[in-house]
Write a protein that binds this DNA or RNA. Sequence first.
DNA 1: AACGTTGCCGACAACGATTGCATAAAAAAA
DNA 2: TTTTTTTATGCAATCGTTGTCGGCAACGTT
Lengths: 343, 343
Amino acid sequence: MEIITIKDIAKALNLSTSTVSRALRGSYEINPETKRLVMEYAERMNYRPNPIALSLKENRSRSIGVIIPEIANNFFSQAINGMESIAYNRGYHVVISQNHESYERELVSTQYLAQRRVDGLLVSLSGESNDLEHFKELQTKGLPIVFFDRVPQDYITHKVIADNFAGAYEATEHLIKQGFRRIAHLTSPSWLSITYERLEGYKKALQNHDIPIEDSYIKYCSHGGMILEEVEQAVMELINHPNRPDAIFTAGDRLSTTCMSLIRREGLRIPEDIAIVGFTNLITAHLLNPALSAVRQPAYEMGQLATEFLIDLIERPKATIRFETKKLDTHLIIRDSSLKATT
Amino acid sequence: MEIITIKDIAKALNLSTSTVSRALRGSYEINPETKRLVMEYAERMNYRPNPIALSLKENRSRSIGVIIPEIANNFFSQAINGMESIAYNRGYHVVISQNHESYERELVSTQYLAQRRVDGLLVSLSGESNDLEHFKELQTKGLPIVFFDRVPQDYITHKVIADNFAGAYEATEHLIKQGFRRIAHLTSPSWLSITYERLEGYKKALQNHDIPIEDSYIKYCSHGGMILEEVEQAVMELINHPNRPDAIFTAGDRLSTTCMSLIRREGLRIPEDIAIVGFTNLITAHLLNPALSAVRQPAYEMGQLATEFLIDLIERPKATIRFETKKLDTHLIIRDSSLKATT
DNA sequence: AACGTTGCCGACAACGATTGCATAAAAAAA
DNA sequence: TTTTTTTATGCAATCGTTGTCGGCAACGTT
């Protein structure tokens, strides 16, 4: 009933561990008859090589670490499913670690996974991370890292992102075409790539339609919606703005839902008083009141692509000549929350 | 720049690895001066013991495995956060594995985690699992297992569940008190504990109010909402029922949202045509159209409690005389989706 | 002076698996 | 029959760490 090792097999069959080991991997220099014996016995005893011993010996674990802000977020859980789909097919396991939008916890997660000898890292940065030394250090030690979604700007490796600029542009332009003019933007911490790119898309759309950019319409939430008070303050400032916005383009699941809650709490109507388009992968978006217009990211595909990049880096370390940044298309779904009342 | 080991320290300081090892763990039989030297050097070189080597040696990993149906589910992601909060405080890491409601994948996940020498397992069964041999086998090999949420009936170990009976009773009674009489129940696979308990609560409430139980109002979805077609068929059968229900009590996040979508797709109104109360931890429940009445489970606390049980089992294997089944209170939140129109 | 204690430290084995090298026996070649 | 080659197997080291054992001083005790 105990866990069986190669030694047990050797003892039972009166062989050495080396012979058993070689027999199991089908080495040509083992007598076919011996091979058969070993194989059969191993099969019968349900032998499985100890992955920990292998990790120690080979200094690799056939697993990849994923560090993301939060599991409880449809974008990330969809991305994880994409990662697993590729990883399992190529013989890797996925170990998930959350940073809860905290730099401290990102650090701890990174160290933990590195110590556990993951063969590579898939990272979406926390809202607090501007120092990337911990990643750089690991990378110079030979640990491949691929960033996705929230990627660092000045970091040379593969990256997988959504076309945040185009998505934001499309969302903002949609609001403009609906007739909204005072369009605010509620977004994540200013130093994140996604924030910058979406902000640029938002600004460009306004510019192209000759709408002046109003800085007080742009609100950053430096914890990405994790802290209610922060979002509350931002949204209240918009609501109480002397020239109250008639639409808000919100970035991220948490920001979009919290913003909706707050607007409703203040007795305002969506979209009559304030329209909303969210950058979100909420699976309940179509069920919300009102149904939430959303820029959807191809989360599953992003996870897949990032994993393919990473496993290539792991398995062919020298082959990569130059690093790529893959940009995937977003998709605007128009629902009730952004429609101008046709009165 | 390489990863430093105890050997490197020994070489650098002209000591043996044993001495270094003992110095680092502060053994009394090492000269304080030597100890200081080793400590300082280790600190300076940022030495961290290799957890893989330790796992191999000690046959344990200081990590606990979690097997759940789906990450992308608010109940489970909240439970995971609860688990992590306890685990980290007690020096354990959490490794997450999904079974996607499939028995096959549950098996694979279980084997994987066992091979990785997790010190214990936290399990919520997949919708397909009625055979529990894989768990039993591991348990007899000495691997502690704690079940939560979806627990097996005839299995002797700690379990943590929500008071599904009371929650279902409360939800059903609420619908009755609102004036609904043709109350249907859309639920998970019949063999799951949560299904049975909720069904009993539902039935009891009907009985206590002298409402006959109509079997054709009870619909099981054997994949727990993972497969759209299945839910669609169940919901359509209810909608097209010769005596169409005026309310549905739905179990689970997926079932509740999918059910709402389908009712709306068919042009029916909630709650005027069909009211809904969901057994769900959706964080967007209050934002839905209409706001979804819900029986909430204390997911975070359930995760915490299950983890405390598990770590106790791990650290004091003999201490446990009898196993407990802890039942936590649910909480009904009444919103618009279950209110009888007061016309 | 002989013996026992104590303090400090190193050698070795072990955890499970793989692998280069050595070697025995058997087969082939001389 | 002797030598060479082939075949099949075992030995030992390795990965990083810890536990057991034992050793060698330097001290105190009779």
